[in-house]
């Protein structure tokens, strides 16, 4: 019931945000129509960090309670997070080409996203290299906690590193009200979508666990 409601809310918000992005919001003057990628890039970046928050919470409770449910949450958060972080990198690259003329630039936010992506990879590596499954879960939880705490420091250091560069215009001096509204609707739409995807992933993982348990019984 709740899920059905969420699906409808998500679809409505998503259609509304697409309308806002392509029809309603004024085109930015200096960058032209490409600037509209911005309404896609910010939600992707937000989901990349939100996922890591979920890994962090799941990891802490897993270490404290040792219950599979929390590890499942952290694992699913990591997988969906990896998907959205990868998307954030791809979108960043598509944004960089027309604006700066290159496919990749060491812009602070893009750089921070890349480092975050590498930590996501480390999270999965340590899990697959553990000798037993429960150990992999513990080790991954450690990486999840350390990684999440690292995020603000990564952002600080990459900003300082490229400090002499002028940041993209849109991030300075605030947004026009219409643009801000569009951005907020896009953020809401993608957050609802994310919740749906995450719950779907968790339920899939629970089924996988159930199957593994049954197979154990069978043998």
């Amino acid at each position: 019931m709740l899920r059905k409601l969420l699906v409808w809310l998500g679809v409505t918000l998503m259609v509304f945000s697409l309308f806002l992005v392509f029809v309603y919001v004024p085109t930015e003057r200096t960058m032209g129509i490409v600037q509209k990628i911005f309404y896609l890039m910010v939600p992707m970046g937000w989901l990349a960090i939100l996922s890591f928050l979920i890994i962090f919470v799941g990891s802490i409770f897993y270490l404290a309670k040792k219950s599979r449910r929390w590890d499942n949450l952290a694992f699913c958060g990591a997988e969906t997070g990896l998907v959205f972080t990868t998307l954030a990198l791809i979108i960043g690259s598509i944004w960089a080409k027309p604006i700066w003329g290159v496919w990749w630039t060491w812009e602070p936010r893009l750089t921070a996203t890349l480092v975050l992506w590498l930590i996501y990879i480390a999270y999965f590596m340590v899990r697959s290299f553990a000798s037993e499954e429960y150990r992999g879960a513990t080790f991954a939880a450690v990486v999840g906690i350390v990684g999440f705490v690292d995020i603000p420091i990564i952002i600080l250091s990459t900003t300082l590193w490229r400090g002499m560069h002028p940041g993209p215009i849109i991030f300075q001096g605030g947004l026009e009200p219409a643009m801000l509204f569009t951005l907020l609707v896009s953020l809401a739409a993608f957050t609802v979508l994310y919740v749906l995807i995450l719950t779907q992933r968790v339920s899939l993982r629970n089924d996988q666990m159930e199957l593994a348990r049954l197979k154990e019984l069978y043998h």
Partner: peptide
Amino acid sequence: NTKAREMILPILFLPVVIPIII
């Protein structure tokens, strides 16, 4: 405590220390 031992440390360690290397 992992199977790969020497291989796994740089994979974990390097991305986390990037901010202080920078």
